[in-house]
Design a protein around this nucleic acid. Structure first.
Lengths: 226, 226
DNA sequence: GTCTATATCTGGATAGAC
DNA sequence: GTCTATCCAGATATAGAC
């Protein structure tokens, strides 16, 4: 699958994502007009990711954020009640979206080898589309509240489980050889994550996401299929 | 090579490391007695790593640090002149030490396959011994001053180059097959880093560092040797 | 060499005008 | 809904006693 096809399929409407978020949090958010709220939530979220990814969330001041998002301090605080809540809000919202896309992309594929490839593509492409958040999510994990931190760990383990299961299935079907499936899955995850954590390196070397995906599939395939 | 052998070989005398540091920075450090200075530099460094790894460097206050290191605020500032300088100090010192150990461990090994294995062991074992710093170094990279940030990137590329070269050598010798060596090296690095970045996961599953090393060697070996 | 006390400033958060 | 003005806790950094 190529990247553009994926992009269209996911048709990441940020607006829809935040519309949904707005309706679920009407009680906490002081602004009542949907279009105003959604527009500002997007601005706030993007500004937070941009600033945090540059200097770190806790080094980002609310004044920085206010300037970058184009909203006053007062206005900001009608969307959340504290800096921590802002972080959790972005985190939860994006996590849910990411999990949903991944599941959607994999349902209906039964052949383990195909499913393995598709899972690799889906992870990489999604992290490409949502790059600022993926990076943010990794780097700011220790600043999350305990509750949301637990959710983040669950998501890591959930996505890893996708690989564990597919390796198991492949072994069961007699396609893959016998390996320590947890460890192989963890290594695949590590490589998937490196793609969004070290973008500077891959950009420097002009490696495209398709090329990266192919290499990873090649590596893992040659290990499991022999 | 097993972990204990490595540990002894490196014989990580923190004291020697900081003794050296002290003598190179006599002008900036206000404390003049070597034994006092070295003892406190170690306490400061360990406390900084512990606190930063829990809540992040910029969320760590100097009061936190003072309490944890067992030194007053005033005393702290006779070892460095600002919070940023403290970060750079730890970073530079540890980077140099790590680079030195890696080079030492690899000189004199010519066979590419052996060298590849040795490089994997050395990286993993070193990150095990210096775990707090490895984690810190990765997570706080964006808080470093530009100058030290560049050094950190150079170190990443330098250690990666070790793998690129060994893959190239192996291909040249007819032992390894032809692959995109930069990409394979990058993937090896990603897996090496995951070991110290996700310790919680590997501890949870009772994976030892030797076991992890073996799996990685197995994966890479099967890919390169076929 | 280390401590206590303190100067100075910055950051998060809110009240109330528009 | 948004802005300005402001409060105040907590941060870094230093001065000067011991």
């Amino acid at each position: 699958m190529n990247f553009d096809v994926f992009k269209n399929r996911v048709s990441m409407s940020k607006k829809d994502m935040y519309k949904e978020f707005f309706h679920e949090n009407k009680d906490r958010i002081k602004v009542k007009k949907e279009d105003v709220a959604v527009k500002n939530l997007i601005k706030i979220s993007e500004a937070t990711l941009a600033l945090s990814n540059k200097k770190g969330f806790s080094a980002m001041s609310m004044r920085d954020l206010s300037a970058r998002a184009g909203l006053s301090m007062g206005a900001l605080y009608s969307y959340f009640s504290s800096k921590d809540e802002l972080l959790d809000m972005i985190q939860q919202q994006s996590m849910r979206f990411a999990a949903r896309v991944l599941v959607d992309q994999l349902t209906g594929i039964d052949n383990p080898h195909l499913k393995l490839k598709q899972a690799i593509y889906a992870h990489l492409y999604l992290s490409e589309i949502m790059h600022p958040w993926f990076y943010f999510s990794y780097m700011e994990s220790k600043n999350l509240t305990k509750r949301v931190q637990k959710k983040a760990i669950d998501l890591e383990l959930f996505t890893e489980k996708i690989f564990i299961d597919v390796i198991e299935q492949g072994k069961h079907d007699g396609i893959f050889r016998s390996v320590n499936k947890e460890l192989v899955a963890a290594m695949i995850k590590a490589i998937l994550q490196d793609w969004y954590l070290k973008r500077w390196k891959y950009e420097m070397r002009n490696i495209s996401v398709e090329q990266y995906a192919k290499s990873l599939i090649d590596l893992v395939g040659s290990y499991l299929l022999q």
